[in-house]
């Protein structure tokens, strides 16, 4: 399959801060690729290098067959970029901003008007297009920014944390729209620190931590790699410890069960990690009924991306987020980005 974006051994320092140490990944043509990681992991720096806003200190960046470092102008033509903080001129109306954008991408003059109308329609901002964008809500601003990014029909759309600060309805709409966009053939690179966002949208993803890729693959591949499905079993609503122990011993003996622990904080429920085989639940139910133990509830789930992150870094994404929040100098980062 053709390659939409190729990043190899990317390295970028700001002063003595290593924002990106060694990042490599490939976005295949026509897929949604997610970059997942806590704030400060190097996602935005990677995106800035890709979109030719920053020069990498080292490494290779390719958009399609174009070397983005050697020929940034050709790369810019193929990329649509939707930044995290939507920079729209408050005084301009949405339509005027799109008009400016069209000229910056040299869309032929005779097709500009029609193209702008198409995008305004596709993003459902007809009612807002002729108002000054300073009056827009966050969701509408984001849609306008998306329209601007798609105006020149780029091969690759890059979105940096597209749903931060959006309400749930706008987020839903954005997700649906990105899936439509993918169906139309556009390759999409999206960064996020929301697990469920990457899980819901991405065909493949790379998890980034402290400037490095720590895992790459499809969500299900990565989850399979950490191994096993998660099973939560409650024998009764509140299970006696003796019964829980009995069930634990019984179930650990089953060939597909890898580990089992009793969780006292949830009424002595049992948390199992099992090999993802077929009919696991039926077999568990059978073993239980053989010794006349009931099953109040029994649920199977795949490991989440958080389990993947946990397995790779030893902490959950949430913990990393909290730890990073204390050490970041947001003002300083903003200054760097102006450079």
């Amino acid at each position: 399959m053709a390659v939409a974006v190729l990043i190899e051994h990317l390295q970028k320092n700001y002063g003595n801060v290593q924002a990106v140490k060694d990042i490599s990944f490939t976005v295949k043509s026509g897929e949604i690729f997610g970059l997942l990681g806590p704030n400060g992991a190097g996602k935005t720096t990677t995106i800035r290098c890709l979109c030719t806003l920053a020069k990498p200190d080292r490494g290779k960046i390719q958009v399609g067959t174009v070397d983005a470092v050697a020929d940034p102008k050709a790369a810019r033509r193929r990329l649509g970029y939707v930044a995290q903080e939507v920079a729209i001129d408050k005084v301009l109306t949405g339509r005027e901003l799109l008009g400016l954008q069209a000229a910056l991408y040299h869309i032929p003059k005779n097709s500009i008007k029609e193209r702008i109308n198409q995008l305004i329609k596709a993003l459902g901002i007809e009612d807002y297009a002729d108002r000054q964008s300073g009056t827009y809500s966050g969701g509408i601003r984001k849609r306008l920014d998306l329209a601007a990014g798609l105006l020149h029909q780029p091969e690759v759309l890059v979105l940096d944390e597209p749903t931060v600060g959006l309400d749930i309805e706008s987020r839903r709409l954005l997700w649906d729209f990105l899936l439509q966009l993918k169906a139309a053939g556009t390759s999409i690179l999206i960064t996020s620190h929301y697990l469920e966002e990457v899980d819901a949208l991405a065909d493949r993803l790379a998890i980034i931590d402290r400037g490095k890729v720590i895992a790459e693959g499809s969500p299900s591949e990565l989850k399979d790699r950490v191994g096993g499905d998660r099973i939560t079993l409650r024998i009764r609503e509140f299970t006696l410890e003796t019964e829980a122990n009995q069930a634990k011993n019984l179930l650990t003996a089953l060939p597909f069960v890898e580990s089992a622990i009793i969780n006292p904080s949830q009424g002595n429920s049992l948390n199992l990690i099992v090999k993802p085989e077929a009919k696991v639940l039926t077999q568990i139910e059978q073993s239980l009924s053989e010794v006349d133990l009931p099953a109040f509830s029994l649920a199977q789930s795949r490991p989440s991306l958080d389990d993947v992150y946990l397995a790779a870094t030893g902490q959950t994404l949430m913990d990393a987020e909290i730890a990073a929040a204390g050490t970041r100098d947001v003002k300083k980062e903003k200054k760097q980005q102006m450079k």
């Binding site: 033509r77 596709a122 029909q153 390759s187």
Partner: peptide, 16 residues
């Protein structure tokens, strides 16, 4: 939607 959103290499690849 498909035709509006689909990438258009003739627009983006060839230089001007």
């Amino acid at each position: 939607i498909n035709s509006i959103l689909a990438p258009n290499p003739s627009l983006t690849q060839q230089s001007s």
